[in-house]
Simulated scan of single mutants.
Amino acid sequence: MPRNFAGPSAGADSGSVRAQAAAAQAAAVGAREMATQAKQATDSMGESMAGMSAAQQQLQAQVAALSARLDTVQLTPGPAGDPGRSVELRTTSTAVQWRQTGGVWADLVALAAITGPAGEKGDTGAAGTPGSTGAAGAAGPKGDTGATGPQGAQGPAGTPADMSRVAALETSVASLILSVTALQAASGKLAAGQATIPALLLGATTTVQVPLKPALPDSNVTAAALVVGGVNVLSTVGVQSWTVVSGSRVDVVVKATGVLSAGAAQVLVIATRP
């Protein structure tokens, strides 16, 4: 950006002229005083000057005439001059330039002439303190559900199960669970129990009361129930829900599904205290 430097104003010119006039007036007054003093000195010489030469007398007359002229000098300030134009400076990519306001820009000094050599590279500063972890961004939109894959080929027909052997295996597992439970019950935090499910018609439900052994101190227990034994190829008995009645009993709701009624199945319950 250009920078302005104001030139002399009309007020400044007027003040300068007045100052010069005052200085001239003071000089005139001083000259007049000197002439007066010279005349007085000449007069005081009196009779001793009677025999001075014609040249001296002529000089005395000139001094007297000069003194008389100085008494009539009047100094009048002249008219104010035109104010000067301001000076502007600017920097281009190659030089510092100047001009008077409204004039043409001209180079004042080339930047290359006032630009020193590049300084040495400074030392690497110390590493700054790591910034805090930013907040987690918002979760992106849920993607579209992919297309359903083709249906797989049907597998080969399985060999019919020997249901009696399956029932025997489940009974054995139940017995093993009860045996393990009996060993852990000594801590007072685990108990188990089983009860037989009566024969049920298709879709029928019933509540089986399962006693826990050993009995736990209170009902603040977590229980799990499952059906074992009594498996029939045409029927199924499943656990619907269970309720901890006390530390010594859990009621289990079971339901029969299938074609025929089922029987000889048992409900196994495991209960634990925190």
Rank of each mutant, 00 (worst) to 15 (best):
M34S: 09
A21I: 11
K39P: 00
A26D: 15
M49W: 02
M49G: 09
A22Y: 04
A21G: 15
A41S: 11
D43H: 03
A28Y: 07
V29I: 11
V17D: 15
Q37D: 11
D43A: 10
Q37L: 07
A21F: 09
A27C: 04
D43E: 04
V17C: 05
R32S: 13
A31Q: 06
T42F: 02
D43W: 07
A38D: 05
A24W: 06
A31G: 07
A26L: 11
M34Q: 13
S48F: 05
R32H: 10
R32L: 12
R18K: 11
M45A: 14
S44A: 14
Q37R: 12
T36H: 04
A38T: 05
A21R: 07
G46D: 06
A31K: 02
T36N: 10
A19T: 15
Q37A: 10
A28M: 07
T42W: 04
A26M: 07
R32T: 06
T42S: 06
Q40L: 11
V29M: 02
Q25S: 14
T36V: 09
A27H: 14
S44M: 11
S44D: 14
K39F: 00
A35G: 09
G30N: 13
A27Q: 13
Q37N: 11
G46A: 09
A19D: 10
A26V: 04
M45S: 06
Q40H: 01
E33P: 00
E33S: 11
T36D: 11
M45V: 07
T36Q: 09
A35E: 00
A41Q: 08
A28T: 09
A19R: 12
A26F: 04
K39V: 10
M49T: 01
G46Y: 00
A23E: 15
A35W: 00
G46W: 00
Q37H: 04
R18N: 12
R18Q: 13
Q20D: 13
G30F: 08
Q40Y: 01
A19V: 10
G46Q: 05
A31N: 05
Q37Y: 03
V17Y: 07
V17F: 05
S48T: 03
Q20S: 14
Q40C: 00
M49Q: 01
G46H: 02
Q40S: 10
Q37M: 05
A23T: 15
A21T: 10
A22D: 13
A31L: 09
E33H: 08
A28W: 02
A23H: 12
A27D: 12
E47N: 03
Q20R: 15
S48N: 04
A41C: 02
M45D: 01
G46P: 03
S44N: 14
A24V: 14
